[in-house]
Design a protein around this nucleic acid. Structure first.
Lengths: 246, 246
DNA sequence: CGGGTTGTTGAGCAATATCAATCAGGGTGG
DNA sequence: CCACCCTGATTGATATTGCTCAACAACCCG
């Protein structure tokens, strides 16, 4: 369990921390601002105690207050179908944001659950609004965050609507790999944060199929998988499987 | 071809029109503003000539300038996979917005193609930004529009990742029905704006499967379908098929 | 060490894809 | 106006994929 820590220079848990020290600063809030502005932002952001696995960060219909940046760990977003079945709509890695769905109706439209021990930065939205009234650059950045999420959602739609199980799973692995890479983390060797069941739920496949496809990819030497530890042996092939037209 | 016209009181095509007259006013831009503010908005919005079927509203990577509200007709958004295959990520009906993906990178991340003759309102984004600097309520509304789109995208993800072809198709029909209903249009009798091929592309199914499932739903008297004209005979059953757990 | 949970594997079956033929409509040119 | 063609949709036969049910293995946690 290599805990990734994006806040190397901080002290006790929950202690006030500067965003200037956070390795995520130019990723999760890509703000082109002066350093004293960063300080103002720092004072807003709340560092919460890490959540254990399978904890809710928030639940659907709860009043919207904050957006959250995943600092370490992983979460999934879930929505409830009318028949009461839970459906996973995305996985969020360190440096990615959740909660943006809450702005429209002033309550969250999905739930967020941790997949492992996870710590997040909480950013109260009223504060963002107040601050962005004074800082046009921040206002633009907030819009960009939301817009970027829309683009990512479209990527997710194209991922889960691929026609074969192999394509979907390969595409998920490629997506995870690229997102780790964008965060300067190992792109070809990482731990799958979610269970096989969760992968299946997200991709519209059964656990058995997920397991079988992963085994097949392994026997073809495309990946190596030991429990959750993944090594991508042939990224080009994985990508080809994922994108193979049709 | 019953052309839906959301602008009953206007004159020649391309002529300046007031948003106050548009039946979409409280839908596509749900702005809680005074009437003179609506006038200011009206002056910004550009009414373009209707586009014929299969025309691009914009293409991926084009510089982002405007967001667009579909006034009549239907469009699809498409993204290009690395293998050059086109994938449909959504259908947009009258009163729905496209182009929000362009804000983040200042260029569009998908393409938009008309499925039939379609007219749109073009809203230049710099104008929105300028106006919203003076009108806090508008700024909030812009954020809400983006947030709402994120929620809708999550609905789409849950739709296309359903496990059976029947579920996905039923869910798509339910989605269309509800969106027409929200627009005060006939919810149980409407024309499918997209081809079977497009449905299949979006849902990750072959045309043949789409056709077969639709035939089956028809033979079970759940729907009645004549070419593109759809009548939903048993909405409750359709919904049950769509949501049937798993 | 035991029991629960999660993941893997197998066999048979159901759903979907593939390939191919046909049909219906719409548009075009004669 | 009709004959033709082209596209999109339907239907059928067969192959393939993925699901279901079941057994079992591996790990986790007490």
């Amino acid at each position: 369990m290599t805990q990734i820590n994006f806040r190397p220079a901080d002290g006790v848990k929950g202690a006030p921390t500067s965003c200037a020290n956070c390795r995520l600063i130019d990723i999760c809030l890509p703000l082109s601002m002066q350093l004293d502005d960063i300080d103002r932002l720092s004072r807003i952001i709340q560092h919460r105690r890490p959540l254990q696995k399978n904890q809710y960060l928030y639940r659907v219909n709860e009043p919207f207050r904050s957006i959250y940046a995943v600092r370490s760990g992983t979460v999934k977003t879930t929505i409830l179908s009318e028949s009461g079945h839970e459906k996973i709509t995305g996985f969020y890695l360190p440096g990615e944001l959740v909660g943006l769905d809450g702005i429209a109706e002033n309550r969250y439209t999905c739930s967020v659950v941790t997949l492992e021990t996870t710590s997040v930065c909480e950013i109260p939205f009223v504060q963002i609004e107040a601050l962005s009234a004074q800082m046009p650059s921040l206002q633009r950045n907030v819009l960009q965050m939301l817009s970027r999420e829309i683009s990512h959602d479209q990527q997710r739609i194209s991922l889960v609507s691929k026609s074969s199980a192999e394509q979907r799973i390969a595409a998920l692995l490629v997506s995870l790999s690229r997102r780790y890479e964008a965060r300067k983390l190992a792109a070809h060797e990482f731990s799958l944060p979610m269970s096989r069941t969760d992968m299946g739920n997200f991709l519209g496949l059964t656990v058995e199929t997920v397991s079988r496809v992963l085994s097949r990819l392994q026997s073809q030497n495309t990946i190596h998988l030991n429990r959750k530890e993944l090594r991508i042996l042939d990224f080009a092939l994985l990508l080809e499987i994922a994108e193979d037209s049709r």
